[in-house]
């Protein structure tokens, strides 16, 4: 039982069997996090490097905790965008990293395709922790695990993804992962934030939040980047939250056992009302817990057998 690949670059690359394997492994690893001593020696002596070109405390910490619970050594590099501009190129960085001989590199970069660029040049495994607008596969995997735990399955479900699809790598990875596993995905948002070709990715498209959440098994709300207002992707937060913010009244349209998800951090009162975020349908904190489990599984499956 192993993942026969060097890198995890995107959900687009993964088969249903591979996704199933990662989720099963993650589910079994969750138990470790409940122990008083939350550590197993599986990856002792392995080096995990996190290289983040965008600030993201949450994702980096989640990877770091995952690596530490498997006893790997971790090194964290955060590169400010400004120093990357005047400083070394990604090719230089790749060469330097290679010389340090890590076992796996976890990279977040503002440019779509940057992990693919590094993966071509590095002998070590590369895990995409978010590249530009492209993919964020471990986020999708933790979302899939969360949905599977709540529903007992992934096939035949209806999942709504709502908000700024255009700028969301979380949405892309989830559309790909969910449809691979047999879920039906409906995306909703204003036309300014829906890129062309979403149907080619496997999603259904609507401009109506109500239509998206009707009979949904899971609702995934995306974080609205507030700078999108200045770029005229929307008029005002008031209008956005009226039409695309999830409020208690919407939950009545969904299935009785609907779950509400959000990749965080939340803009309470913008894309999600506080009542919903903190209400009984919310699984937002389970997502965080599952994030550690999924990342442990990915590390284990990529470098555990070597």
């Amino acid at each position: 039982m192993e993942l026969r690949r060097k890198d995890l670059l995107g959900m687009a690359d993964l088969t249903a069997q591979e996704i199933g394997l990662i989720l099963d492994t993650a589910a079994s690893l969750k138990e470790i996090s409940q122990r008083p001593i939350k550590k197993v020696p599986t990856l002792r002596g392995r080096t995990v490097v996190t290289l983040f070109y965008e600030p993201s405390t949450r994702t980096r910490m989640s990877f770091e905790i995952a690596a530490k619970r498997l006893s790997a050594d971790t090194v964290n590099l955060t590169v400010a965008a400004s120093s990357a501009v005047k400083g070394e190129t990604l090719a230089d960085t790749a060469a330097n990293l290679q010389a340090m001989q890590p076992d796996v590199l976890i990279i977040r970069h503002q440019a779509s395709g940057a992990p693919h660029y590094l993966a071509r040049r590095l002998r070590c495994g590369v895990v995409n922790a978010g590249d530009g607008l492209h993919e964020h596969p471990t986020q999708a995997l933790l979302d899939l695990l969360t949905i599977r735990e709540a529903k007992g399955r992934l096939d035949g479900l209806k999942v709504a993804i709502v908000g700024d699809i255009l700028h969301s790598r979380v949405a892309r990875s989830n559309i790909l992962g969910l449809t691979t596993m047999g879920s039906r995905v409906v995306v909703a948002g204003p036309a300014t934030m829906l890129p062309p070709g979403l149907t080619a990715l496997g999603a259904e498209v609507t401009h109506s939040l109500e239509e998206a959440v009707r009979d949904a098994d899971a609702i995934m709300m995306l974080r609205l980047q507030l700078e999108r207002m200045g770029q005229n992707f929307l008029s005002t937060l008031r209008e956005y939250s009226t039409h695309f913010g999830l409020a208690p009244r919407h939950l009545g349209l969904a299935r009785e056992d609907v779950i509400v998800m959000h990749p965080g951090p939340l803009n309470r009162g913008v894309e999600i009302s506080p009542e919903v975020a903190d209400g009984p349908y919310s699984v937002i904190l389970e997502q965080v817990t599952n994030g550690v489990a999924v990342r442990m599984a990915v590390l284990l499956l990529l470098i555990g057998e070597r």
Partner: peptide, 13 residues
Amino acid sequence: HEGPVSTRLGLRG
């Protein structure tokens, strides 16, 4: 080019 491929690759169109 803006189209299904740019959407898939997450590149601005």
